[in-house]
Design a protein around this nucleic acid. Structure first.
Lengths: 210, 210
DNA sequence: TAGATTGTTAATCGATTAACAATC
DNA sequence: TAGATTGTTAATCGATTAACAATC
């Protein structure tokens, strides 16, 4: 990142969406877009779009707008997805395998090194040619391979211990799918996908409509 | 809901977390908790906790705090998870099956009626005894069964058409896992789980640490 | 150049926190 | 009752929106 000014979480959450829309625009052959046009498309105000982007630099040009291809690339750089990441997945049940497939199919730049589980009956299996290893081998594996990111797709009870092993093993980020709030040192980035919370927010909104 | 005052999205997003912690407290045999103690546990300020809850009613008692069991139940009622929901899942690949298993195992009150897919080789299979049906049969199935919620676990290209069918079929809520922003009428609740956005936010934070 | 549109400052809005009177 | 802690109002903080001078 070019500077270390603290950028709010709300802004960061919008960046991937900007990038997603820019990717689509690029696919449609669009060269440039103004904040006003982008606003209509994405549903944020033009003001907000310009404010958000100016947290990171002046990517636009007066009288012209933003270059689609360039802005797409810049946001990728801001998000840090212009480089490669190695991943281990802890918990290799349906959800772990689904995430493995998802990353394999849609997330170029992210490579899964290995998966782990405690269940003897699935240890040794392969998912997209990635082997499911014994959870007991995790510590040694981390020490040897130093993956960047650990994905936690265990049940609630094992999640914190998985997180402890991952942080001790030096991962820089944890993507957590277990329905608990993990405790990790400040030096490790943590992103949660709480399915249960999301589903229950849905039922709230469903019932609040009429 | 007891009143129709608009409660902010930020508050709603915190409710499932309150409930999750209360569930844990209940399991530990705690009878009561003050907003101050709860604050230490959950990491929000005591003020925020009281403000959030008072959007929905006065659940506490001066000099005492909140009854754990009662507050847990009340938040369940607010979130609308005190009743049953029927679900169909559109897209029965790994992710669809993972979500099916997740709901089956962890979300009591939510029952999956059927799953759908276009791939002939998986049509007819069963996941937790729920059959995967032909996507072509979705319209007729919705008309006959009137499920409450539709889950979209298709790829990006089919997601909007799945959403159209679901809304035409009368679902009241859509839980979307496809990496697109769906267009649905205001009368349908929409909750998104954008895995890609979440992963890219993780890489941002990972790189912004030191 | 004239017109368009950004970058940025100022104004507004909403959400969080602090404070405290009410009350169990 | 006295002490504790809520419910709620007021103050603060931060994020969004509006406005406009700068400039391509």
């Amino acid at each position: 990142m070019k500077d270390h000014i603290k950028v709010s979480k709300a802004v960061i959450k919008r960046l991937p969406k900007y990038r997603r829309y820019l990717e689509e625009l690029k696919g449609q052959g669009a060269d440039r877009i103004s904040s006003g046009e982008f606003s209509k498309l994405i549903g944020y105000t033009a003001s907000q779009i310009r404010q958000d982007l100016n947290n990171f630099g002046g990517f636009g040009q007066q009288g012209y707008g933003y270059n689609v291809e360039s802005l797409h690339r810049q946001i990728g750089i801001i998000l840090g997805i212009d480089r490669a990441y190695s991943i281990v997945i802890v918990g290799s049940g349906n959800l772990g395998q689904a995430i493995a497939n998802y990353i394999h199919n849609y997330e170029t730049g992210f490579s899964i090194l290995a998966m782990f589980d405690v269940k003897p009956e699935i240890i040794g299996r392969r998912v997209n040619n990635v082997e499911i290893l014994n959870f007991d081998a995790l510590d040694a594996y981390l020490k040897a391979q130093l993956p960047d990111i650990g994905v936690i797709t265990t049940g609630a009870t094992s999640a914190q211990s998985a997180a402890n092993k991952l942080t001790a093993g030096g991962v820089k980020g944890i993507w957590n799918f277990a329905p608990v709030d993990l405790n990790v040192p400040d030096s490790v980035a943590l992103e949660n996908v709480h399915l249960s919370d999301s589903l229950h927010a849905l039922t709230y909104y469903l019932n609040s409509l009429q």
